[in-house]
């Protein structure tokens, strides 16, 4: 499987072993990232990294795990409840309202992820994006949806 290396700046402890072992110089790039075009996917940098800040990721992700309609249907009911609670909480004053709105958004995200929208490159996401293109609203950002369909 063709892979390429990515660096998590948050975990990187600047030991810079990746700079020594990289055969193409891809790890030594001005923006602090590993250059995708130059990386040949050998994995030497990820093996050498003492802080596990480099991961090898595939160009093509495996098919998303299938989900049962019965499960998705009830998960969506709970998902809907969490989004309603986010709406209410965001109207409430103060830090607690903001925190509860955020907690409900995070729970809603987790639920929809486990109910058909795990992988951004999945058929489910692409068909949802295609349906979005029929949105009649004048201000609908269709150009962004088209750009996503092109890139995913």
């Amino acid at each position: 499987m063709a892979k390429y290396a990515v660096r998590n700046i948050r975990l990187c402890t600047k030991d810079c072993l990746c700079l020594y072992v990289c055969p193409t110089g891809a790890t030594d790039w001005e923006n602090g990232q590993i250059d995708v075009e130059t990386c040949i996917g050998c994995g030497d940098c990820a093996d050498a990294c003492p802080s596990a800040a480099i991961s090898m990721v595939p160009f093509t992700y495996p098919r998303q795990q299938p989900r049962k309609t019965e499960v998705v249907t009830v998960m969506n009911e709970l998902f809907q409840s969490k989004t309603e609670q986010e709406s209410i909480a965001s109207e409430l004053p103060g830090r607690l309202g903001a925190a509860i709105a955020r907690a409900n958004r995070l729970m809603a995200e987790d639920l929809n992820r486990e109910a058909g929208f795990m992988l951004p490159q999945s058929d489910n996401v692409k068909s949802l994006l295609r349906e979005m293109l029929d949105d009649p609203a004048d201000d609908f950002p269709a150009d962004k949806v088209r750009e996503l369909l092109k890139r995913l």
Binding site: F79, T83, N112, F117, L128
Partner: peptide, 16 residues
């Protein structure tokens, strides 16, 4: 399961 756009409210689409 094949989801459809009509199954979701705008807030749900936002969370997706």
């Amino acid at each position: 399961h094949k989801p459809s756009l009509d199954d979701y409210s705008d807030m749900q689409l936002s969370a997706i």
